[in-house]
Design a protein around this nucleic acid. Structure first.
Lengths: 210, 210, 210, 210
DNA sequence: TAGTAAACGAGACGGTACGTCATGTCTTTAT
DNA sequence: ATAAAGACATGACGTACCGTCTCGTTTACTA
């Protein structure tokens, strides 16, 4: 469908604005692009972020380093691109049941994903982002913001249908709910699993006070 | 004070068990140790974690790289050591008023500190920890666990004095309260300030549901 | 004049045999050819041979790299082509007076040219030729041989009219007279100027022995 | 003998002034230095100057690129160092017979060496020197000047003992005699052999005029 | 007046080597 | 026994050009 194509293209546009450019010159080789992305993801999985090196990706993909540098401004950007599609696919945002049930389902799913093989990749990207502003901004733009937007809508829906109090601080609530993942993943090294996510959800929904 | 001394000794013990060893030979040069720690902290502040290099610390302190490697197992360990004392001093855990008031005060103070010059240092350490297990474990041991312990006691006190419900999941509550700092600091790049901390505290204490 | 035309055509023929080919297809764009040659010469003058890059010439001329590669087999060939016409024009071979006077005049002129802005260009071309056989052969063919031929005729004329001994080794004499330029230009970095050329000429003509 | 040592050290001093420094710190590893020089020479012989790459020398020698860069400022300097000792050994300056005989013997020997396996190495170094001032200066300092000095003395000896005219221009004579080698080696690609050297010598000694 | 062949610009691509940087180990000399 | 100095192997960095390869467009000769 045309619309889907457009969305796809917009998603890609962040790193490949060139795709839209018309004019003479050889076109970007899609096969190469895919080979690089695939090699990048494989490297991330096989070596972790520590072994995620432009040289390694070049070697594994058969592409030249220069080609990678031409299209991705930094290691982090490549890493994000390489696993974003896969991640998106595995993390749909449920919108079917009650707001609190949807929230719980979403947190459970996220815990499952973050607790699995994507966890250390995400951790690596965020780590890289601490010394590379572009990377962390890209992470924000492509991963955080869309999902936070969904969270915002979910909470608004909950307010609208009377599940949540109308005076809650939505930002703070999202900080509490999703921040916990970052703390456990990055600093506390505690496991992330659906059961924990459920407890977290319950705790924040009900609050601490009597 | 005895307590302070104990903490100090414990702090030093982790990286410098050699100090206690008896036997022949020149004693460890305390002046050198301090010069290194000071240089390390200055480097962190001046260059950020990106420019925090063993090489740079050696150059700034006048010590040899080998000397640094002898006493600290990794970059991260040195970074933690270099700012821990300062950090500890600035972040006391209030234990005076009601549990919820104490909690709020603590979160406000923490937001102030993390929002200031220590924020990027902490971010750098956690980033380094993602590819260096020893660093993140040290961070946990020296910074997270003691404070989490205090948080645990605070919540238990709140339960005991009837402020909080007795069935709350303390772990999940701490995850929500403190995790938010990590999310904002590391990934979302949102400012950390006392006003936000207060909103966070209120939100988690009261919960979202009607 | 007929002679000039012939030389011109021969000069061009080496790199553009295609011009003669008949058949369909767009003709070679003379404007482009000139733009490339001009850009090449300018690059040589401005950057020296070190900065003489196909990329640089392409950028300066506005031509595509492919166009350059289509018409010139190597960097060196382009360099030679780019300055040959100019060089030829400035270095006529005098044939008017006595053989020894003509020789001296020729050496003086050559010293003037090699000591000026062409010197480093020639040096660069010879340097490139050391790792590119085609270049040095082209240099030989286009620059050395014609002039050496003239030198040969000059010496023969001198023998014929009794100025020079009939048993001299012409090859060795030319080696001595012209080789000195290469030594000073390429290795000894001594200045080349007419006064020196005159002393050189006298020395070789008269010999060293009593 | 002390004097010899001093001379040796001076010769080495150009690239290793550090040798004399006293104080703490690991000493330069002579084995590494030799391995590098040997690998450099082997590379020159095997690949020619075109394949003479710091990377290649590093790979062949087992040393790190950084180590090479620490001790040699440029490719050219390394190339010169790597073959200088060998060259020096093979090219003594005869001082036994008459000046003209000594000169002829020297030119014959030089032609033999330049015509052999050292020729293309020298050509490569001079080529590199055209775009690297330090290299050509080093070549001058270490190879040209000492020998030219000997040539100067030889001619002065010839003047003193009545073989040569007292009014000859020594500089010009040396230019003619040795320059011929550069012309043939670098530009004309004519073979260098003892028979030619002899003819050259005779020609310059006797002169061209009747 | 088509068809078609070549020239041309643009620029993507796989490569090679560059010179630099930081790491962590090792060796030497001085205290 | 420590410390300072610093040589060393390692390995990745990001860059500059290389020479080759599509592309889409323009030109001009031929059928």
């Amino acid at each position: 469908m045309a619309r889907t194509d457009t969305v796809e293209e917009e998603a890609t546009a962040a790193t490949a604005t060139a795709a839209a450019r018309r004019g003479p010159g050889r076109k970007r080789d899609e096969a190469t692009r895919h080979a690089i992305l695939r090699a990048a993801y494989e490297t991330l999985e096989a070596e972790g972020y520590g072994g995620f090196t432009i040289e390694a990706v070049a070697a594994r993909s058969g592409a030249a380093k220069t080609t990678i540098y031409r299209w991705w401004p930094s290691k982090g950007a490549l890493a994000i691109d390489s696993f974003l599609d896969l991640y998106q696919r595995e993390a749909p945002f449920p919108q079917t049941r009650s707001a609190s049930e949807d929230l719980k389902a979403n947190l459970r799913l996220m815990a499952k994903i973050w607790g699995g093989r994507y966890g250390c990749i995400i951790a690596g990207i965020i780590a890289a982002g601490q010394s590379d502003a572009a990377t962390i901004e890209l992470y924000n733009e492509r991963l955080v913001k869309p999902r936070r937007e969904e969270g915002l809508r979910l909470l608004q829906r909950g307010i609208a249908n009377g599940e949540f109090r109308p005076d809650i601080d939505i930002e703070a609530a999202l900080d509490a709910l999703y921040g916990a993942f970052y703390g456990r993943l990055l600093a506390w090294l505690e496991p992330l699993d659906p059961a924990w996510a459920e407890r977290l959800c319950d705790t924040v929904l009900r609050g601490l006070m009597v």
